[in-house]
Design a protein around this nucleic acid. Structure first.
Lengths: 222, 222
DNA sequence: GGGGTCATGTAATAGGTTACATGATTCT
DNA sequence: AGAATCATGTAACCTATTACATGACCCC
């Protein structure tokens, strides 16, 4: 097997294999199970993709379809099971995701890199709004965790929520600091304000630089 | 205009409009400019997508193509410019990204939610490996920032790197704590070990639960 | 003057998302 | 008994990524 088709794009594929590692299921059942267990919080799930992913795993031989059953008069459903190659793929993939961080281009990072297009005062307001919303999200996550723990769910099954919570808190703290720099540090906003002042009033030729126009370019790392 | 086609999937579209807000360009030039300015660190860029995105923006009327030029005997190139509607779209999109956090399903979160599939000792080792790699990445980012600052680039154009750095540091700290829980807290690993002990040795029917099998389900929020 | 790399883009393919279909249960 | 919802999936469309094309310049 020269290439062995390692198609690790959609993590939903990982979830599918994880479920089939437990027991055979048909796709709809996978979806419901993920929902019940709250995994849809951490793994994006939608029906279309689910069937696409299942077909792909089947092509690769990681799962096999049994004969289509019918229960009552419902639509036929196909029950899938994990193959030996699937068990290996599952473990490899999971180990890889846990041990090596991947770059993921969060949208907020993109926005930050273009932020200078907006005038500093406006950016400040927007960031403040963001911290408010982050605060709300953080509360929501805390309550969710507390509720789940009180219902007897083990902490082991909440690590992913703990992680998200930690990240949101860190982001909030960072945004607050940035917002503060904008509000208080004239040094930070000086070049920024100058550009916006020296630029025609949103005329058709208006140009706010995305980076320094003549200044030293950032060297290409990579 | 009933729907106004707000297609905000690929942030590369935002970057394209941001560049054209400065001055008209042809696609290849957009790519080079993004590269020069180091934005490819924060906005995923590849040629295929670039042309797809440009066509989409044109369809929506946010940018317009001038007559194809030819310089020397190079392939023809089409220079695009931002329209009035494009300027509005650019600002709206950017404001939105800055002020409202979006859920993004990082792969590590998916992995964490399936982590119990692996035995605790192995998970611990993998997480340790992750912290090492995160440490290296953090150093890389620090050096990159220092170098850019020394070359005279304003801090304003490094906020996105500051952000990424802060997030990586937070992640590293969190993973270290988790790794520690696994190594030291027998309470944390007790249910985990029990399952792995009580489960057939990777036999074809082997089943490690993805979540508690009979315990209280996590309630469906949303 | 031939082998890389730059400049510029098109085409084919694969992947993902939205919309639709359809019979059974359940609620009021 | 009609409305909503569950259960189960297919099809069409859109997006994104990879592979390929092609002539010019540049180096030795």
């Amino acid at each position: 097997m020269p290439d062995m088709a390692r198609n690790r794009s959609n993590p939903l594929g990982l979830a599918v294999m994880a479920l089939l590692f437990e027991r055979p299921m048909h796709p709809y059942e996978m979806a419901s199970t993920l929902r019940e267990r709250g995994k849809e919080q951490s793994i994006k799930l939608n029906y279309g993709s689910l069937y696409t992913v299942v077909r792909a795993l089947e092509r690769k031989g990681h799962i096999t379809a049994g004969a289509p059953e019918r229960a009552g008069a419902r639509p036929e459903r196909t029950v899938y099971a994990l193959t030996a190659s699937g068990r290996v793929a599952l473990h490899d993939w999971l180990r890889d995701l846990l041990s090596v961080p991947v770059k993921e281009y969060p949208q907020f990072e993109a926005a930050l890199s273009l932020m200078p297009i907006l005038p500093p005062a406006e950016a400040g307001t927007l960031l403040e709004e963001r911290t408010r919303r982050l605060g709300a999200e953080i509360q929501r996550l805390r309550h969710e965790m507390d509720a789940a723990l009180k219902q007897g769910l083990d902490r082991l099954f909440l690590v992913e929520t703990e992680y998200e919570l930690a990240m949101r808190e860190a982001e909030r703290a960072w945004v607050l600091r940035l917002r503060d720099s904008i509000a208080r540090s004239t040094e930070f906003t000086r070049p920024w304000r100058k550009w916006h002042a020296s630029r025609p009033r949103t005329g058709p030729a208006g140009a706010a630089p995305v980076s320094s126009e003549r200044g030293p370019r950032r060297s290409r790392t990579s």
